Simulated assay, not measured.
Amino acid sequence: MAKATLTRVRGNIVEAEVDAVVNAANSSLLGGGGVDGAIHRAGGPEILAACRELRAGPYAEGLRTGRAVATTAGRLPARWVIHTVGPVHGADADGALLLASCYRDSLRVADELGARTVAFPAVSAGAYGWPLRDAARIAVETVGETETAVTEVRFVLFGESAYEAFAEQLG
């Protein structure tokens, strides 16, 4: 294992042509707003059906913050969706550790799947209120330090401010 190449692009994560797209999910795994809603809408009913199966089985109580699990990508150009639940900013004293765990655990799941290219959004930096610059720092540092078989991690950033925050971190 080595460390992945990190890149950033401005765009819509549902259009990312990668092995796995990371979803900034909520703990229910049943869809929501922001990135989560966009992935469920674009991926079609197959993603929701797979999430319902997870809820009927090992994730009956939902997915814990900082953890990740994979499903089909349905109609997305990716093969898999890796769902991770980011922390709400300020809701937990260990929030930064949980946010870092989202990235590490998503890469662990990607390795288990055999994914070599992974697209991440800015986890927790939307509705969960994480300050964008800090979210970018945690994401880039964590992914940069994590040993993985993934060869490319692409941060797919929807807005200009997110793109710039990641640009500052990536150099």
Score class of each variant (00 low, 15 high):
L54H: 14
R116G: 12
G57M: 00
T117V: 13
G66I: 06
C102K: 05
A127T: 14
I39E: 03
I82S: 02
A70L: 01
L48A: 14
P58A: 14
R64M: 08
L76H: 11
G129H: 08
R55E: 07
I39T: 06
I138V: 15
Y103P: 11
R52E: 15
G62C: 12
A49R: 14
A68H: 05
A91K: 05
E61G: 10
C51E: 05
L97S: 01
L97V: 13
S101D: 15
A73Y: 04
T84P: 05
T71V: 11
D111P: 06
L54A: 10
A115M: 06
G43K: 09
A122T: 13
Y59V: 06
R75G: 04
S106A: 15
A93W: 00
H83I: 09
V118Y: 07
G44H: 13
L98F: 14
I47G: 07
E46C: 06
R67W: 01
S101K: 07
G62P: 11
H83D: 06
T65D: 06
D92Q: 04
R137C: 05
I138S: 08
S106Y: 00
T71W: 01
D111E: 11
L98Q: 15
A93H: 05
P121K: 09
L48N: 03
A127D: 07
G66M: 05
V69E: 05
D134P: 01
L76S: 05
L63H: 09
L63S: 06
P131R: 11
R137A: 15
A110W: 08
A96F: 00
A93V: 14
C51P: 07
P45E: 14
L98E: 03
V109S: 12
A135C: 09
W130M: 07
Y128H: 14
D94G: 09
A127P: 00
R67P: 00
F120H: 13
V118N: 08
A73H: 06
V81E: 03
A136S: 04
P77D: 12
G129K: 12
P45L: 11
E61C: 01
R137M: 11
A70F: 03
G57L: 00
D105I: 03
A73G: 15
L54G: 08
E46P: 00
Y103H: 11
G129E: 12
P45W: 01
G126F: 08
A127I: 15
H89T: 04
T84F: 06
R137G: 04
G57K: 12
G57F: 00
A73Q: 05
I39M: 00
H89C: 10
G126L: 07
A49N: 10
